[in-house]
Computed example of a mutant assay.
Amino acid sequence: MDFAAEIDEIDRRILRELRVDGRISNTHLADKVGLSASPCWTRMRNMEQAGVIEGYTVLLNQKLLGLPDTVMIEVTLERHDDDTFERFGQALAQMPEVLEAYLLTGEYDYLIKVAVAGTEGYEQFLRRKLYTLPGLRHSRSTFVLRCLKRSVSVVP
């Protein structure tokens, strides 16, 4: 079943409010979207069960946590077989510095977003972690100067 076809404007208002504040109380959320608490809770639960709402999270300030710099890394692997992709992807998922990792089409195989503490922190990440992974052939890095937009989900 295509749940997206069943989402109405009230569901979209619920999702927009949750996107801004995932800790909002059900009572306050219901007031904001024009429902009573029980139907609001039921709609949220239905969207959770359908996978529309995948989870709730908190955004941490990486600068205040001592990792002020973001680096985008393009990676090319030596081989393109399922085992190499699987092992490389699993290894990336275990690295706390890796914020996001995408398998790509085109010139590079992966785009990786990492949080580091300056060039020294980045060098340590490269030498002690990324370059130790088997199968890596080439990487190209770019330091982020400023984030212009950051979003963890789409706007419904």
Rank of each mutant, 00 (worst) to 15 (best):
S153L: 00
K129W: 13
L145E: 15
F125G: 06
A50S: 06
E100M: 03
T132P: 12
I24D: 07
V52M: 02
R87V: 08
V33E: 11
K32L: 14
E97D: 13
E120C: 03
V144Y: 01
E9I: 00
P156E: 10
V98P: 09
P134W: 00
Y56C: 06
V152N: 11
L133P: 13
L59S: 11
A4C: 06
L18Q: 10
I73V: 04
R87N: 15
R16E: 13
T119E: 11
M95K: 06
L18G: 06
D31T: 05
G89V: 04
T105A: 03
P96R: 02
R146E: 15
V98W: 05
S139G: 02
L104A: 10
D69V: 00
I10K: 01
E86C: 04
G135H: 04
T57A: 05
Q62G: 08
A117I: 05
Y110F: 03
V116P: 12
V114G: 05
I24F: 02
G106V: 02
D81Y: 06
T84G: 06
L92M: 11
T119R: 09
D83K: 11
G106S: 02
L60S: 12
K149I: 05
T142I: 02
M47H: 09
L59A: 14
P68R: 00
V33T: 10
V71P: 13
L29N: 10
D83S: 12
E48G: 01
A37C: 14
R87G: 13
R127N: 12
E9R: 03
K32F: 07
V155K: 06
D2P: 13
T142D: 04
Q62E: 15
F85R: 09
E97V: 10
P68C: 00
F143G: 06
E107K: 13
A91R: 14
V155Q: 09
D8N: 05
D11K: 01
G51L: 02
W41V: 09
Q49C: 06
L92R: 10
E107A: 09
V152W: 05
A30W: 06
R16G: 04
R16F: 03
E17F: 01
E123W: 06
L99W: 13
K149V: 07
L60N: 09
L67A: 03
R150T: 15
Q90R: 11
Q62M: 08
R79N: 13
G55D: 14
A4H: 15
L29D: 11
E54H: 03
L126Q: 12
R87I: 10
Y110K: 08
A30C: 03
G55Q: 08
D21M: 00
R43V: 12
R12M: 08
E123V: 10
W41I: 14
V58D: 13
L148Y: 12
L18W: 07
I7G: 02
A101C: 15
D109Q: 03
G51Q: 14
V58F: 04
R150W: 11
A4S: 09
N26P: 15
K63D: 10
K113G: 07
V71L: 00
L136M: 07
D83Y: 14
D11Q: 03
E17M: 01
L99R: 10
E86K: 09
V71M: 00
L67R: 13
G118P: 15
T42N: 12
G106W: 04
T76D: 11
D31P: 14
Y108Q: 15
A91E: 13
D11H: 03
P156M: 00
